[in-house]
Write a protein that binds this DNA or RNA. Sequence first.
DNA 1: CCTCCACAGGAAGCGCAGGAGT
DNA 2: ACTCCTGCGCTTCCTGTGGAGG
Length: 399
Amino acid sequence: MANLFEQLLARETVFRDRNYITPHYTPDKLLFREQQIQKMTEILAGLLNGKRADNLFIYGKVGTGKTASARHVLSHLLDFAGQKNAQVSGTYVNCRNHNSKYRVLSKIVKDFYPEHNFMGYSAAFIYEKLLGFAGEGRGIVLVLDEVDKVKDVDELIYGLSRANDELRKGSLCILGISNNVMFKDDLDPRTKSSLCQQEMVFPAYNAEELKSILSERAKLAFNEGCVDEAAVSLAAAFAAQESGDARKAVMLLMRAGELADKKGLARVSEEEVRRAKRLVEEEIILNMVLTLPQQEQLVLYAIAGLTLERPPLKTLTGETEEGVLYSGEVYDTYVKIAKKFKETVVSSRWYRECISQLEMYGLILTTQSGKGVKGQTRFIKLGYDAKKIKEAIEKGLTA
DNA sequence: CCTCCACAGGAAGCGCAGGAGT
DNA sequence: ACTCCTGCGCTTCCTGTGGAGG
């Protein structure tokens, strides 16, 4: 009997190197971002001659290459500065992980003085340290990704730009990135004019562009001839239709490849992409179900349970129709279930609020009762597969 | 036509956790 | 460290609505 891992590795695969088709990988050449990269290069070029550079604010939806482009330009800048012995430094901060002025500043200073640990030092000290570093005559680029996540952005930007004004030698250049279009309007006017000296918008990719991007990745990630062109087109089309998010397109093709491997297929075809899309959608729904507030989960669980109990009805035309539930009976079963799980039972008013929420999420469908029913009530129908939803919630409740 | 049923959904307010302000 | 404030989840109370049934 062969070793378990040996077996696994020896298995047929469509992948040459799976890493190239994960969202973590950034290609050396960023397609369809030449303009943006060019403009960023122009803005930052002055630093190499000891001049100041304008601050730049970049925005655009997720998966439009903002982060990748910024990091790309930054690394080129630092490489070139290293070769030319120019006094240029820079660092990248993801503000989702460093979401306050203090955290951002200490991350920056820690990057410039890797041998020191500034944990616990006062904000003023860290600020001075940064001023000192720049004051030695360095041009510094600070890439602040997802700046909108910083709680006190105004203070952070204000502090940094004031530092820039105070410096006699050296300079600071802020390159802010955000995918929230509204963010700019919430800023203090002074912060806004400071951060947005230059602005840039990254548009979403269209289907053709996504196709080219995917093709490039596919060449690297898949073995030759292992992925149909039609499959790449379809994945690009799906992603373009929804959002123009390159990351989503890449994920879709990766999943399709995994499906092909699982089924022992030699190549990835459109069929795998379709199945991958369904799979991804299912994951999103199940994830949504699990992150629902407790009471809404219980209500949904009651609906799923009742739907399964009730055999699908045959309509007059012979088609089967999903069981339609009355609002009242759903509430009654919800109460029973909540008691069984020893959870608090909410009032029927709040239950109705849960129903509205679930409908907003698209997890259920409701219609007003018409003729043939006494009183006024809502008919409730599950939007997705009852079994899967029930299983998902059961898993969540026992965990 | 009136009444009742079986709900829908608005308004006000309560208790609590957690963040902001000092 | 302290209070103050705010948002969330929820309850209570209430008025509205359209069909069923007498």
